[in-house]
Computed example of a mutant assay.
Amino acid sequence: MRYHIMLFLGFLTTGAAFPAIAANISPIAAKIELGHRLFYDADLSRDGSMSCASCHEQRHAFSDGNPTHPGVTDEDGIRNVPPLENVGQFHTLTWINQHVTTLEDQFFIPLSGHHPVEMGMTDMPELARRLYANPCYRVLFSKAFPEKNIPIDARSVAQAVSAFERELISDKSPWDLRLSGATRSQTNGKKIFFGKGKCSSCHHPPPIH
């Protein structure tokens, strides 16, 4: 998994030292690091109990290894948590609505959707208030969105988290590197993926150069 992150979360808790660290960060680097922090922040959920990472665990390729995952209301989930590696290359992002084609739009489905309730955050002014209370967030949002007079809003949160997710790139596996000695299960999986399973009709692999 490859990350192009310019800061580490440890620096974000240093209070007064943080503005000096952030002074030379470019807007795109600030946006990615902001998204990194938001991805792990449970304040994005209604009751402060669930972050994006609660379901998308790094050790499970940013999935969780379970059939479904309940939300903040303990309502049973109805879909498997999808992994996020290479999600920036996907052409569609949900099974339910094939017209959701950007990560920024998809972000609001788990954040504030009702079928089922996941993070349950429907009060966007409250979300902005929570984030504005954190001085590190104020610095990062201002740096990431210099064109906005009021940089902390729900759309900016979606853009930052999406910027981080686009950095979750996995391209160093033996299969990616086209190394010799593919196992029988890998070969069979390729036949299913591109053949009778028709997985590739929705999940288009990136071109091999």
Rank of each mutant, 00 (worst) to 15 (best):
Y3R: 13
H4P: 00
M6R: 07
G15C: 08
A17H: 12
I21S: 09
I25Q: 08
P27L: 02
A29M: 07
A30N: 07
K31C: 04
K31Q: 14
K31V: 04
H36N: 15
L38G: 03
L44S: 02
S45R: 03
D47I: 10
M50N: 02
S51I: 02
H56I: 13
E57W: 10
R59E: 15
D64V: 02
N66G: 03
P67D: 10
G71Y: 15
V72N: 11
H91C: 10
T92I: 07
T94L: 05
W95V: 15
H99T: 14
V100M: 05
T101W: 03
T101F: 04
T101E: 11
F108E: 15
F108K: 06
I109S: 06
P110G: 11
S112R: 09
H114F: 03
H115M: 07
M119H: 01
G120C: 04
T122D: 00
M124S: 02
L127Q: 04
A128M: 00
R129V: 01
R130L: 00
Y137N: 14
Y137K: 11
R138T: 13
E147P: 09
K148C: 06
N149W: 09
I150C: 04
P151S: 12
D153Q: 11
A154F: 06
Q159A: 05
A163F: 01
E165M: 10
E165L: 04
E167H: 02
L168E: 07
L168I: 10
I169D: 05
S170C: 07
S170L: 13
S173A: 14
W175K: 12
R178N: 14
T183G: 06
Q186P: 00
K190P: 02
F193D: 06
G195W: 05
K196P: 04
G197P: 12
K198M: 10
S201D: 15
C202T: 12
C202I: 12
P205K: 11
P206F: 03
P206W: 05
H209K: 05
